[in-house]
Design a binder for these strands. Structure first.
Length: 106
DNA sequence: ATCCTGACGCTAT
DNA sequence: AATAGCGCCAGGA
């Protein structure tokens, strides 16, 4: 039995590696990740989100956000701090300016 | 197989 | 701007 780290599916790896490629000060979205992986793995935004909910803690999770520039309430305080630190383009509301900050996986 | 849940996204109010 | 409804779909129970 492998009692080591939680087993990651290929899909999990794919999602996490995309997040790892997001440059400092930029973001990507669950939808963008889903689009990039759909042809190979299928799945939609929720599938990508699920991966982040389970494994996000070991990557720059604040760089993977909703299409409206936010994250769930319980993550917003921490995320904002990170966004400010790395100079992520924000909107007056405090949400990320997705139009300016979006990085699309290629 | 069935039911429920969820770090989503889009449209219509 | 804020809320509601609905489609979506993988995982776990």
């Amino acid at each position: 039995m492998d009692l080591g780290p939680v087993e990651l599916t290929d899909y999990d790896d794919a999602v996490l590696s995309i997040v790892e490629r997001v440059p400092r000060g930029r973001v990507t979205t669950y939808g963008a990740i889903a689009d990039a992986l759909h042809d190979v793995f299928g799945g939609g935004p929720r599938a990508a989100a699920r991966v982040m909910s389970q494994h996000g803690s070991n990557v720059a999770w604040w760089r993977c956000i909703r299409s409206d520039g936010t994250l769930p309430a319980w993550l917003l305080d921490e995320a904002r701090q990170a966004w400010l630190e790395e100079g992520t383009p924000l909107r007056p509301s405090g949400a990320v300016d997705v139009g300016r900050a979006l990085w699309v996986p290629s």
